[in-house]
């Protein structure tokens, strides 16, 4: 663990076995066991040469830690990064809000205007009997018809490892549809007996189910 650090000159006291550099480094880094540390510290207290060597190591560490943490590049690197980012994922430049609105519109449009949408509604919706129910009961009936499916799909979506932007688009799309559901419910409240208003509300729930199915990977229709 020790070495001779070289001649100290005729006037120096008898040079003892010095601490070698590696050991000084270990002392500095706190890597020595307690006994070795005590031994090294005892020697350091008596040996000016090893004190000097240790002090140089300490200074070197201080100087290194004092170096600036930030250095600005001499040119702007952003244009190259931006080009590469856009090349790899060009869709992001559309903006996620636009993408969300686009998906919701696509789903709503498909549900409203495709024969497939009507077929799905007929398969999944309970029979309509607006004359025998109040507005509240009508809304509850629709909710109860769709909520189990929605909850099931929600769980499937939660289990998926979605990219943050995909999740963002999903939530934006669902928000658009929720707004449409509120409007359809308001129309039904104004005219509780209207089959058209009830049908409109169901179509909005169809849209919500379809968005969730799309993300959960349970639909290949869109």
């Amino acid at each position: 663990m020790t070495e001779r650090r070289g001649s100290t000159g005729a006037g120096d006291p008898e040079p003892g076995p010095h601490l070698h550099d590696e050991l000084l480094g270990e002392l500095l880094d706190g890597d020595l066991d307690p006994d070795a540390r005590l031994q090294a510290e005892d020697h350091l207290a008596e040996c000016p040469q090893c004190q000097r060597a240790y002090s140089e190591l300490v200074d070197l560490g201080h100087q290194a830690r004092a170096l600036p943490q930030e250095i600005q590049p001499t040119r702007d690197l952003w244009p190259g990064i931006q080009a590469e980012v856009r090349r790899r994922r060009p869709w992001v430049t559309w903006g996620y809000g636009l993408a969300a609105a686009g998906i919701a519109a696509l789903i709503l449009g498909t549900v409203f205007f495709s024969p497939w949408g009507h077929e799905m509604a007929e398969m999944e919706s309970p029979p309509e009997d607006p004359a025998s129910t109040t507005f509240v009961a009508q809304v509850r009936e629709v909710e109860e018809a769709y909520e189990p499916t929605i909850q099931e799909l929600r769980l499937l979506v939660e289990d998926q490892e979605l990219a943050p932007e995909t999740r963002e688009v999903l939530e934006e799309s669902l928000a658009v549809i929720e707004e449409a559901i509120r409007e359809a419910a308001a129309a039904l409240e104004e005219d509780p007996g209207s089959p058209q208003a009830l049908h409109g509300l169901r179509r909005m729930y169809d849209a919500k189910v379809e968005v969730l199915r799309l993300v959960a990977g349970r639909s290949s229709s869109i």
Partner: peptide, 24 residues
């Protein structure tokens, strides 16, 4: 969060705020 959602401008802000550290 904005950059994670695909906002390139937010990503540029992060870049400009941290590039000195990475370059050093």
């Amino acid at each position: 969060e904005r950059a994670q959602a695909g906002d390139v401008r937010a990503f540029e802000y992060l870049y400009r705020d941290h590039v000195g550290r990475v370059y050093a």
